[in-house]
Nucleic acid binder design. Structure first.
Lengths: 197, 197
DNA sequence: ATGATATCTAAATAATCGTTTAGAAAAAAG
DNA sequence: CTTTTTTCTAAACGATTATTTAGATATCAT
């Protein structure tokens, strides 16, 4: 069987997630990864193939873990207005949010690479699709339960909440004034009340 | 007096603005700048001192030119709801927007560097301040003219529109589905109608 | 035309980039 | 224990990074 690994893949991915989230893909060097993950270069490349390979694995894990935790509740069959409000309150907590100074890894990556998709895995497109679809799902549930005004268009509202959350990610990332972030969240929640039946 | 410069500083800044906007600071190399600006390394460093110096000059120009063009109208004494709607419609045009595939340089930079301010010039903080303040100015004008419902809080609304616009910048940058971008803009405009007196 | 001054070209700088290689160390299988 | 397999350490790889230097070239003032 040979020598045992002195590292745990899952632990490595977790640490790499933090580093990439803080410094971006281009801003993270192999040197930094070796330092922060506490693993040798050889093992890093044996395990993930390349910096890009590690990054792809990190994006996948971020989607499975963080995006799932944040937007998964909206995708539940029973989700509705309450779940959307909880999400907005969560990110609206500004300094108390885990995204304070970090933002969202997938949002950051979308901005860093723009229209180019370096990995070809389509993480970014799926990210926008998932976020807007999760809002749409919760809104359509609410509408079917008669909780939403007939005048509202769920598709457009989903796009709207997607933009609101992405904008909050940007402000959280750069530590914009807390009052601005909180104002954004509060008005978005008020809008949520305003479209009720 | 010596030999004349074969380049125009303003032209160089304009081209550098495009390159940095497309590829970010870390993603732009001196090689790319020499290539795209059509100027030699020596002159580039003689004129701007360093890559960071050029970037700072570019950010300043972007603020003076692009941010001024987009948000300047909101800062006018006569500005109000109409100017906000025009701005939202402009960025909501998605594929037809000049930000399609590019986003906003200052928004991109805010995400790339996060809470760190490499230049120390505070461009990012001033950016958030200016954008939210421009919305606030237009909203307060409208309120003073009695165009806004008494229930609305201009400060919070300003934070909200700031987030909405930043979110649209992110989606424009990464070429998110057009329907999502347009939905965001349309609902934001509907919200604008909803808070009228 | 001459001398001074400034910008040009083009090569080279040291440092860092992502990645690989050679050999030592460790642990399983026989 | 010996062999085999795997990971480890540590050095090195070529390429690219941002920046600088030396010398040729051009334009001014005289």
């Amino acid at each position: 069987m040979g020598r045992r690994k002195s590292y745990d893949r899952a632990v490595l991915l977790g640490k790499a997630m933090e580093v990439f989230r803080d410094h971006g893909f281009a801003g993270t060097s192999a040197e930094m990864l070796v330092e922060e993950l506490g693993v040798n270069r050889f093992s890093l490349y044996a395990e993930f193939g390349s910096k890009q390979g590690l990054f792809d694995a990190v994006l996948q894990r971020y989607d499975d873990e963080v995006v799932e935790r944040n937007f998964g509740p909206l995708e539940e069959p029973g989700a509705g207005v309450d779940e959307i409000r909880a999400l907005l309150e969560f990110f609206g907590s500004a300094r108390k949010s885990p995204a304070w100074g970090r933002g969202c890894l997938l949002c950051n990556t979308a901005v860093e690479f723009g229209p180019e998709d370096p990995s070809g895995a389509g993480f970014i497109q799926r990210y926008f699709d998932r976020v807007s679809a999760s809002f749409l799902s919760a809104l359509e549930n609410a509408r079917n339960r008669g909780e939403l005004s007939h005048a509202v268009n769920p598709e457009k509202e989903a796009g709207f909440f997607t933009a609101a959350v992405l904008g909050m990610f940007v402000m959280l990332r750069a530590k914009a004034p807390v009052s601005v972030i909180q104002g954004a969240a509060q008005v978005a929640i008020e809008h949520l009340k305003a479209i009720r039946a």
